[in-house]
């Protein structure tokens, strides 16, 4: 068990009536990874997270957290898992510190946890709100308490289900700073987000789900280098004419002094493109290469999967 993955997902299927929410998902998340779980709405991300947390029972397959089966060894699995839910849910009867204290209590933690609760409150910038009722907090503050609740038992694996949805820029920056710190401290982080730039910035490895299936699972670098396309912006001294058909097909836009063309990373070369333009008698003033970002890769992969 000492070298088992942080999260094991083995051939997991789940249907809700006629809807197949998970279709044979099968992958692992290693210890210490910052793992991104991406996909459009309805892809199965939340179902997978809920299955790991024990809120959804898979029809078949196996799920484990730090080697502990989430069904047969659920007590051990849950002690090692912290989940920040997507919805802003809270108990309106309690104040901030009470909320965290009770949550720690549910994990059987006694007084020894109190310094850690103080540390969390400080890190989440909630120290001046400890005695405020949950109802009176802003959305961003409630979100921070949710994160505190997920971390209160110091779980080695933390799942954040779209934690920055509806959160302002400043708080988002603070949250990522905290999550990066947790990752630095050795926690395995699993993140779902709609903000692809966040996944691009933070995650080591990314799984893209669509319609309950795995569309892609790769390191961020490999995913970005899948050779889907680049865009080349070329400023010219005059309008380029008489370009060979092979190049003309790639042109997205052309004006008197500008050419925008897309080309395949694996098949084309920037130098060859420039040589061809020069051979056509056009002087190149400036060029700029724009690579696809994760969003383009994501859109392309999920579109391919649907087709």
């Amino acid at each position: 068990m000492s070298k088992c993955p942080a999260v094991t997902i083995e051939n997991v299927h789940k249907s809700f009536g006629p809807v197949r929410a998970l279709r044979g998902l099968d992958f692992t998340i290693q210890r210490g990874e910052f793992f991104g779980l991406l996909g459009p709405n309805g892809a199965g991300k939340s179902t997978l997270i809920n299955a790991l947390a024990g809120l959804v029972r898979p029809d078949s397959g196996k799920l484990a957290v730090m080697g502990y089966d989430v069904e047969s060894e659920y007590r051990d699995a849950r002690k090692r898992l912290g989940v920040v839910p997507q919805e802003l849910v809270y108990d309106p009867f309690f104040q901030v510190r009470e909320t965290l204290r009770f949550q720690a209590g549910y994990f059987g933690l006694g007084r020894e946890v109190e310094p850690w609760i103080d540390e969390l409150l400080d890190a989440l910038d909630l120290m001046d709100k400890v005695d405020v009722n949950m109802r009176a907090l802003s959305g961003g503050m409630k979100r921070r308490v949710l994160i505190g609740q997920a971390l209160v038992h110091k779980p080695p694996v933390v799942i954040l289900d779209e934690p920055t949805a509806g959160v302002d820029v400043e708080l988002r920056r603070q949250l990522w700073s905290l999550v990066k710190r947790l990752h630095g401290d050795g926690h395995t982080i699993v993140l779902t987000t709609h903000y692809l730039e966040e996944a691009e910035e933070l995650c080591d490895r990314i799984a893209i789900l669509d319609h309950g299936g795995l569309v892609a699972l790769d390191t961020k670098a490999d995913l970005l280098a899948r050779g889907i396309s680049k865009t080349l912006h070329i400023h010219t001294s005059e309008r380029a004419r008489n370009l060979p058909p092979a190049l003309a097909d790639k042109i997205k836009r052309i004006t008197e002094d500008y050419i925008e063309l897309s080309f395949s990373l694996s098949e084309d070369s920037v130098m060859e493109v420039l040589d061809t333009i020069r051979d056509a008698g056009v002087h190149v003033i400036d060029i700029r290469v724009e690579e696809d970002d994760l969003e383009d890769v994501f859109v392309q992969l999920t579109r391919d999967a649907r087709q």
């Binding site: 947390a53 809120l55 849950r78 839910p85 849910v89 809270y90 549910y106």
Partner: peptide, 10 residues
């Protein structure tokens, strides 16, 4: 929905 905080515990 806050029952989830009890459901995800041991």
């Amino acid at each position: 929905g806050n029952l989830v905080f009890v459901q995800i515990t041991p």
